[in-house]
């Protein structure tokens, strides 16, 4: 009950914030987010929760609302072209979350910079090595 009440209050507040547009939110890459901005502002957590459970519990990797993709598009780089963590002060996540004092719990576990700039071979973006595919065909059920 209390939580629901708080969540409602928070939503009302967010709606007022989003219409005010007084926050200096860094722009992401590309023309448009995968959802309209005003929907994203209010519902990003629902999208993320929903798709997170699909991926984690059911192994669905075709999801669209992926935190990895948020980080990919919305991370800024500094003058040395190094990625700034997306939850760092003044960055995409932090601007609103600091303004409304909501703690983000995502990045104690999740990567806060894109694979492309962290120097790891970005797994999801790399094609399948042929050897692995052959082995997989040989050993397993591949659609």
């Amino acid at each position: 009950m209390l939580l629901r009440g708080l969540a409602c209050l928070f939503m009302v507040f967010l709606i007022s914030v989003s219409s005010a547009d007084w926050l200096d939110i860094p722009r992401g890459k590309g023309e448009q987010c995968i959802e309209p901005t005003e929907i994203m502002r209010k519902q990003h957590m629902q999208f993320l929760f929903h798709d997170r459970d699909l991926t984690m519990r059911e192994g669905d990797r075709s999801i669209r609302h992926s935190l990895v993709d948020c980080v990919e598009c919305h991370t800024q780089v500094n003058q040395q072209q190094k990625a700034i963590p997306i939850n760092a002060s003044g960055q995409f996540c932090a601007v609103c979350h600091e303004a409304v004092s909501v703690k983000i719990d995502c990045f104690s576990c999740h990567a806060n910079i894109p694979d492309s700039s962290s120097g790891y071979s970005g797994f999801m973006n790399s094609g399948l090595p042929e050897s692995a595919r052959v082995l997989m065909k040989k050993w397993a059920f591949v659609p």
Partner: peptide
């Protein structure tokens, strides 16, 4: 492979690979 303090973890059989057709 998200990992963070205070929780338990173990081998995932590399679900991120297996789900996309890798071993």
């Amino acid at each position: 492979s998200p990992r963070g303090k205070g929780v338990v973890e173990s081998c995932t059989f590399c679900t991120h690979r297996v789900d996309t057709g890798r071993i």
